[in-house]
Design a protein around this nucleic acid. Sequence first.
DNA 1: TTTAATTGCGCAATTG
DNA 2: CCAATTGCGCAATTAA
Lengths: 163, 163
Amino acid sequence: MSNPSQQKLPTDQNGVSVIQSQGHSSAAALSAGLQQVPQLVPVNPSGGGKATPLSKMKKAVADKDSEEYRQRRERNNLAVKKSRMRSKQKAQDTQQRVNELKEENERLEAKIKLLSKELSVLKDLFLEHAHNLADTTQPVGAASSTATGNSSSTATNGRSTGQ
Amino acid sequence: MSNPSQQKLPTDQNGVSVIQSQGHSSAAALSAGLQQVPQLVPVNPSGGGKATPLSKMKKAVADKDSEEYRQRRERNNLAVKKSRMRSKQKAQDTQQRVNELKEENERLEAKIKLLSKELSVLKDLFLEHAHNLADTTQPVGAASSTATGNSSSTATNGRSTGQ
DNA sequence: TTTAATTGCGCAATTG
DNA sequence: CCAATTGCGCAATTAA
């Protein structure tokens, strides 16, 4: 975390980082404004061993000057830009998706509320009717006349979970 | 678009970019592995004119060596890392939020479906009863006896959401 | 193997 | 002045 040491140098295949001169800079360098220069560092842990074979080292040195190098860099820079743009776009889209879903959620919840209310009303009506029927069809106990004026106003709501 | 020329050099106040030696690199440089070096460039378009006032130029040159500079850079690098971490985290959170909202949406929709079904059932029952009532109270045509064998087979379950 | 896409990182300019 | 953001380039890695 607080340790800045990252030590992830390029390290040529052999174990020696390439050091690049900054003496001459072509027009390409200008376009970039800055030039990143690998730092020479002894990546070879053990002192002895292979004596840095100069086999293809030459290529590495010419590297930065090469027009082909510049071309590759430019291509990559472009790709990077593109990739980052897409990334940002995606993030934005996701954020928007959140908003849309939130809205939809609210709509749905409102609908649920409405339906629930309708249901409870209907249920109440049902109970009322059921009582009425019971009274008319089953006088049961006392042989009292049919009290048609019955009406149970108490709302016996069949509340479902309040979500 | 395809024009790579960005030309956004630091360019010291005077008009001369600083060129930095890479002779000695402190531990900080090592930790970074790379060092960005501003390229010297003649930002002064017209050959004549002001003769690059050396007023505060000195400071600029010493800049990169300055321990204070290094310190600032390190602080900034840290801040950058932090900022990027947060940014990434935020993006992830947003993505997750999308998933959660999606789930919730499905739940809500299921609930709506359920409620709708319940409602339709109740309504049907209602209609049925209404017909029955109409029949009993208004024999109208033929004086048929009361067919008490009524039965609404549909189960009117008052099930609240599982969950 | 080559090339495009990603990713981590440092620098510098801005911004708050 | 300082920390946080942001755009940009480089290089290493990962995918195609």
